[in-house]
Design a protein around this nucleic acid. Sequence first.
DNA 1: CCTGTATCGTACCGATCGGTAACATTGTCA
DNA 2: TGACAATGTTACCGATCGGTACGATACAGG
Lengths: 205, 205
Amino acid sequence: MPTDKNIDLTIRGSHASAPPKAAKKILDVAYDLFYRRGIRAIGVDEIVKRAGVTKPSLYRSFPSKDELAASYLRQYDREYWERFDEAVAAHPGDPRAQIKAFLTRIGKRTQVADYRGCGMTNAAVEYPDHSHPARVVSEANKQELRRRLRAMAVAMGAQDPDTLGDGLLLLIEGAYISGQLFGLGGPAQSVARNADLLIEASLKK
Amino acid sequence: MPTDKNIDLTIRGSHASAPPKAAKKILDVAYDLFYRRGIRAIGVDEIVKRAGVTKPSLYRSFPSKDELAASYLRQYDREYWERFDEAVAAHPGDPRAQIKAFLTRIGKRTQVADYRGCGMTNAAVEYPDHSHPARVVSEANKQELRRRLRAMAVAMGAQDPDTLGDGLLLLIEGAYISGQLFGLGGPAQSVARNADLLIEASLKK
DNA sequence: CCTGTATCGTACCGATCGGTAACATTGTCA
DNA sequence: TGACAATGTTACCGATCGGTACGATACAGG
């Protein structure tokens, strides 16, 4: 049996004998570059150079640049719901506090120089074609976000849960975008406050 | 024989100088392609091909592709404030109705297949570098939008005008983005309703 | 040892990127 | 008509795009 010192974190197959050493470095570097500077702006040459590998190594682990971009977004997706679930777990049974915690965190994250917003949102803007592998991941992520927000609006006892859930989604997307548009001191810092106002106005009297 | 079938609409007189016959076609085509498919996704070759001209014609009227993109956004900017001012003019002295009219219009525009959101927002996502000519135009447009929304929040008598103005901006940006993410039936259709709820909750009691 | 297997890197592909030099064509007025 | 200036066109540039053929290399089990 192989040493198995490195556990494969992407549950591909149950093959324990697939330790793609280069693949992880490539994905890590691609994640950083794609997120910070955009997918279209980054060429595969720069990725392999920064990762210290060569191009064939990239194409042995990923069938194309588009699929590498999709892998980046799948990784982003996992971390996204981790953060979301943390906010939920911090306030059991209190959806309003859960939302507030999640949005407060988003508002804080937007208040740094060179904030780049949501990788999912950015990818969808870069690829209008609905069949693009990256966009498929992005749209699925947003559908799930919408589903959760609407469910939480129900749990909060909103008069019109779908409208409130969608309103919260609009505020969140607005925070991602205005965060990268305005930088420090931008409108995104008020996302939690505005969301709370909107929630208050949407509850059954 | 120069049949002169192409009318010159810029200069008075029958046969005055014909300044930018090609430039206008180039900008028109670039506007459409840049908006629908993204700036980075479109090459200058495709622009000149669709415009029925050649590359040197483009580079005689525009110093670079980046500057052509900036020109596209300046045109977008003019039309943007035209639409904004129309909503304002439709309800003199009633900022709340002005906002509602503007957002109702946005909400409607988002409810078409392949809606592509706001050209300004998209350009900023495509070009994270603050010094890029296209981004400079985009950021100026958003700063002006923020300024107007905050001023209208003051005029509405909000308890905290800056927060309300920024909240409206978040909803608007969210509508642009979710409009292109979700297509028909997406959250963007509720932008006007949510904005009105937020306004109601933000007025001085 | 030998041999199979899998990952590695060198070198290269055609296509396209943004941009330009040099030339042909055109309209205008003296 | 002749001369000028502006515009349009052909052909091309080096750089980079995403992607690959193929040989070198490392390492396992017999």
